[in-house]
């Protein structure tokens, strides 16, 4: 019942976007987000849309998946749009009904917000859809490594993230077993009111926590046995080497970013 949970929603593939260096992908995603937020004109978003559509096409992941990623945020979108629609009072009045009125500016702004948020979600989904969680962790560790000079525990954080990722399937399997074991003893897990169900979760969480602590203890010993000593002087099997395609992709992103800024300056 818990088998189909995937974290990060990674779709393995061999497309150009998949093969890009994860460090570059993170930087490009950040630039992309900046691009969406600096542009104040609807044409900037047009530039953003072209960029997004191009990237999605190159990733060879069905558009359906991206629409799916927007779905959970629909209520949020509707509320944002409604607030802008009814609360912006400037501009020509298009529609009036009792105390509600919709103005031209209000319509423009709410459309603008919707497009911006949809693009934002789709673009950042592209990063997690095309990059495995472990590659992401690795890239974050390397991108943040200058912070080590400020005694920020970059390696430790990355190690924690990768161990968490490693243990998610193991713990899912274990939770499944505990649920079955408790059901076999007559525990009612999916029946009753919200409160009863929440109370029943305790009988699953307690054994899960106990076993997680035991696992952590054993894992720590096993890591020590294999000479783990923190991040000092470590070498890596996974080598990240930037290829020409990474620089080209980065250049394309920067050009788009520049275009968006130019448009917003010119049309101010």
């Amino acid at each position: 019942m818990l088998r189909d949970i995937t974290i990060g929603q990674f779709f393995p593939g061999e497309s150009l976007i998949h093969r890009l260096d994860p460090r570059f992908k993170i930087v490009m995603t950040l630039l992309y987000i900046l691009m969406l937020f600096t542009g104040s004109h609807i044409l900037c978003l047009a530039v953003g849309t072209v960029y997004t559509v191009m990237a999605i096409a190159l990733s060879k992941i069905p558009l359906k998946m991206f629409l799916k990623s927007v779905k959970p945020l629909l209520p949020f979108l509707v509320i944002t749009a409604a607030i802008n629609l009814f609360l912006v009072n400037t501009g020509d009045v298009l529609f009036r009904w009792r105390f509600l009125k919709i103005t031209e500016d209000g319509l423009n702004i709410s459309l603008f917000m919707i497009i911006r948020i949809v693009l934002l979600i789709m673009g950042s989904s592209l990063l997690t859809y095309t990059t495995s969680p472990i590659a992401l962790t690795d890239a974050i560790e390397r991108l943040l490594s200058p912070l080590k000079k400020l005694h920020f525990p970059v390696h430790e954080l990355a190690m924690m993230m990768s161990i968490a990722l490693r243990f998610i399937p193991t713990l899912i399997e274990e939770t499944d077993k505990i649920i079955s074991a408790q059901k076999a003893r007559g525990a009612e897990i999916d029946t009753g009111s919200m409160i009863t169900r929440a109370k029943n979760m305790v009988s699953i969480l307690v054994p899960l926590f106990v076993s997680s602590f035991r696992r952590a203890d054993e894992l720590a010993t096993a890591m020590e046995c294999r000479c783990y000593n923190g991040g000092e002087g470590r070498t890596r099997l996974r080598q990240l080497k930037a290829a020409p395609r990474d620089f080209i992709a980065l250049a394309v992103t920067i050009i788009f970013y520049a275009a968006a800024i130019t448009v917003s300056i010119l049309l101010k």
Binding site: P133, E218, A222
Partner: peptide, 13 residues
């Protein structure tokens, strides 16, 4: 050293 529980000694994904 190799331990009893294979799940609790594998570090990477």
């Amino acid at each position: 050293m190799v331990f009893q529980n294979p799940d609790n000694q594998i570090v990477s994904s």
